[in-house]
Nucleic acid binder design. Structure first.
Lengths: 212, 212
DNA sequence: TAGATTGTTAATCGATTAACAATC
DNA sequence: TAGATTGTTAATCGATTAACAATC
């Protein structure tokens, strides 16, 4: 039951997959699952599943398997999705709108507290039950609400200005959907990139390979 | 100049990053770049850059560096982004709309040829200059247009039905934005997953770590 | 030529898989 | 107890980094 200290990033990136799967089993009232079963359904090896779960506590029992509910809760707690970090969204175009809806409907540790856009056409609109605010209100909003994370759905050209402003206001975590690769000058930041074009290009490679 | 046969997936996933960076240099009229320079700007090591570029032809020259334009073109050609694969989009909600716009504005080897949705409210709408079609027209459309890739922006609950139908129609490549992890029963398929919730959960872990 | 920078081999590091003793 | 399945160590595999000779 004692926690191991270090979980590698490779393992962390697999935890959400486990989490979803265990949630599904839990919902269906299934109490136990073996590493073999999990591995088969998820496309891993049983060895890897055990190795992964061994990074933290002991929710497995020899000859039996893993306790679905407890394991799921433990993974949720490691990921921190049982918390609720405030975040703001910058840029309320199509993608911004989609993300706002997504984050509101699929809770995973973050709560959307404000939406900002530079366009007069968009400011004032209601998105995911929130009114889009102009950038002029950003500073005040951040100082009052103290969000810890910013979602970047602004165009490539605006990213640097926006991140400079946000960094100055004390925000240190970013979920970056802009093409631009924010290369943070500072060490104390966390950036999670979602590069759609990169994903599309990788797919393109594999499609080309499949066809040829 | 002779091509090596095998490029690992780890390298392939870095190629889009190189591509963007080289494109930018090219646009700015810069002719040569060294592995050291590239590495510094992109957060890799010079060694890795050279190792990566060494998987394919020889666009480097000792004592000089790499020829920006040619290298960029070569990477584009390896990724297949100089081609134009037809694709269709399933599900025209917020995210579908964003992706349709994205794929139209950021060409990366794919051309959007049709958009489908099940909702009467959405069918008939114009998105990215295309009219949204009902599922009843899917079969005919695919048989005539022969798209090679399908973008899945349908809700989790609909994915299995939709992919079964698409597979039966001969489509073998998928860009999957639905939560659901399509675990293809068949070997001859290519699936590129973009799991927003997973990305959010990983970010959540890192934010939690940063704060604590 | 001297300086720079690649191409490539060898060393290291980390992640995955295999194996099996421990134990429920 | 016998069968199942974990926890954990060792072996393998692959990817990254270091080093340096080749060469522009």
């Amino acid at each position: 039951m004692q926690k191991k200290q270090y979980i590698s990033m490779a393992v962390i990136r697999r935890l959400p997959r486990y989490y979803h799967f265990l949630k599904d089993l839990d919902r269906r009232g299934i109490l136990r699952v073996s590493s073999k079963e999990l591995a088969e359904k998820m496309g891993f090896t049983a060895s890897q599943v055990r190795q992964d779960f061994n990074c933290f506590g002991g929710y497995g029992q020899q000859g039996y398997g893993y306790a679905v509910h407890q394991l799921r809760e433990e993974i949720g707690s490691i990921l921190g999705v049982d918390r609720s970090h405030k975040c703001i969204l910058l840029g309320a175009g199509n993608l911004g709108k989609a993300i706002a809806t997504h984050i509101t409907n699929n809770f995973a540790g973050f709560e959307l507290s404000g939406i900002f856009d530079s366009s007069e056409r968009i400011v004032g609109m209601q998105i995911a039950g929130k009114q889009v605010l102009p950038y002029s209100e950003l500073q005040n909003f951040v100082q009052q609400q103290k969000p810890v994370m910013a979602i970047l759905c602004v165009p490539r050209s605006a990213v640097e200005d926006v991140t400079d402003a946000l960094y100055a206001l004390g925000i240190r975590s970013y979920w970056n959907f802009s093409q631009f690769d924010i290369h943070m000058k500072y060490k104390d930041t966390v950036v999670e990139n979602v590069h759609l074009t990169d994903s599309m290009m990788t797919l393109c490679y594999r499609v080309t390979e499949l066809i040829d």
